[in-house]
Amino acid sequence: MDFENRLQKHSAEFTENDRKIAEHLLNEKNIAQKSITDLAEEIDVSPSSITRFCKKIRFASFQQMKYALLAARTEKRVNDEEVECVASYYQSIIASTQQFMDTGQTERIANDLIHAKRVLFCGIGNSGLIAKEFNSRIERMGIDSTAITDAHAMVMKSALLVEEDVYMCFSYTGKTQSVLDATRQAKDCGARVIVITTNDAEELTALADEVVLVANHVFVDDEKFINTQISSLFYLDVLTYRLLENSKLMEQRNKTLEALKRFG
């Protein structure tokens, strides 16, 4: 059901604040860039009023409502206008991931990676592609690291970690069994455990020293948009940027790039 029809169906339940929120959302042109706090200030209602409104029109969260509203505005676009549609999804996912980010946490994780004896990156499927991408970046900075995307190898490698090591896993759902098994072993070995996920799944996140939440693409509410990686890549871009503020890592990256130019 599209956004306007939801409003019509549930309008009989609306309070005065609900009507203010609905009217504002129908005319809001830049919803992708707005947080729930931003909208609450503009409409002169509380964030909790917006949360109640979302649930009243049968959305699980503000983010899901926002993505549905974006989809409703783009579903009639065709051909070259699809570029603008996908771009709006990217902008919304990046803005949502930004809300999860914590500068202090990014600093801690950067320091963990800088001072690690070894770093093990783990992930299965699309999450494995993210693990490989970040490992490629880290290797070029001179940090001793490995990316594992095979379930058996993941369990074996995590069993050999020590307290001076860092284990970073990427799990879209937070429920992939091989990742859970490897994470338990990394924790038992005393390694520093960092989890990057879209889902605060307790079984996995309870094992972590640091949990990084990134936006989930499913709230875009468009089955044609299947990019599960953009939010994680955005976070890793931010973390990479922070790491390269370290002069030693930047120098080592430049050395490896120069070597690749000469011999690669």
Rank of each mutant, 00 (worst) to 15 (best):
A110R: 01
A110G: 02
N111G: 05
D112P: 02
D112N: 04
D112G: 00
L113V: 10
L113A: 03
I114A: 04
I114M: 07
I114K: 07
H115M: 05
H115R: 08
K117A: 11
K117E: 13
K117M: 07
R118E: 14
R118C: 11
R118W: 09
R118T: 12
V119M: 08
L120T: 05
L120G: 06
C122Q: 05
G123M: 04
I124P: 01
I124Q: 00
I124W: 00
G125V: 07
N126R: 11
N126P: 09
N126K: 10
N126W: 08
S127E: 05
S127K: 03
G128F: 05
G128C: 11
G128A: 11
L129K: 14
L129R: 12
L129Y: 14
L129H: 15
I130N: 02
A131N: 08
A131W: 02
K132Y: 12
E133I: 01
E133P: 00
F134V: 03
F134Y: 03
N135Y: 07
S136R: 09
S136C: 09
S136D: 13
S136H: 12
S136L: 10
S136E: 12
R137Y: 01
R137L: 02
R137K: 04
I138V: 13
I138H: 01
E139D: 15
E139F: 14
E139G: 15
R140T: 07
R140S: 09
R140G: 07
R140D: 10
R140H: 12
M141N: 04
G142S: 08
G142L: 06
I143M: 10
I143E: 04
I143V: 11
D144M: 11
S145V: 12
S145I: 11
S145Y: 13
T146C: 13
A147D: 14
A147C: 12
T149D: 10
T149N: 09
T149L: 06
D150R: 14
D150K: 13
D150C: 14
A151L: 13
